[in-house]
Amino acid sequence: MWTALASLLLVVGSLWFYSAPLESQANPLVTPLHVVAPWYLAWSQGWLKLADKVFIAFIFIPALAVAFFVMPYIEVGKSRRYADRRVGLSVAMLFIAFMLISNWMGSPEYRVESSPDQEVFQELLPQEGHSVILSVPYEDLEIGTFEPGQEVAGNPALTDALREFEAAMNRHSCNLESDQWRDDCKPITGNDGTVTQYANNFTKDAMPDAEAVLIVEPEQHDMKRITLQIQSESPEGPVSTNTLAFRHLDAGYEED
């Protein structure tokens, strides 16, 4: 019975609850923007934020491995009772707690942020996986220039994507002049007292007075070119960045 039930579970699970989306080929010359370690190594990602990377990777982790090897020679007591091995078990408990926190620190939520415009690009057009913009059906990705939050008549899919665009922009930008719908800019000053960057309620590095557009143009037969353009103020003056993506009719992002 258990064998049959387990097979049923595995078959159903792999058919309907597990998908392996198409990803890019691995290329040692291309480093993704956010490198995410597999879950079972998240703790080591967390540690990298605690101290110097070289120290962690080349001294601390190997030292820990050695510690595990010598442990049985230090901890030689025969009894397993807590009363008989207070130190050992306490250290073990502390270590487990430390590992839990490390894993949590290593989770993608606490990753090192890149610049806010790149974060917006990454949120809307990630290099791998589900993209808010690419998953708009090909026909609904109308040719034109659109603003974040714009309502496109008769096109709920694109309107939804533009709403996500607006949300992403709001997370990563702030207003120099007070405004209801976007956080005010909180200046962060450097050692010499000049403003180096601005923060908002979500992030320490926000784009002041950012304006963005999504441009969809024909590129080739059955393929459209998508440009995301962000303009913002900065302590050094206005800056403009953009990113380019393509959407082919057959690419099937609706499935991802």
């Binding site: 198409l22 070119r225 993506a245 393509f246 082919h248 057959d250 690419a251 099937g252 499935e255």
Partner: peptide, 19 residues
């Protein structure tokens, strides 16, 4: 469908490389 999607994405990635 997966094959079509693969080919479509080849073209997309090629576009990036071309530009």
């Amino acid at each position: 469908e997966t094959t079509d999607a693969f080919v479509g994405r080849q073209v997309e990635k090629g576009a990036v490389l071309f530009h």
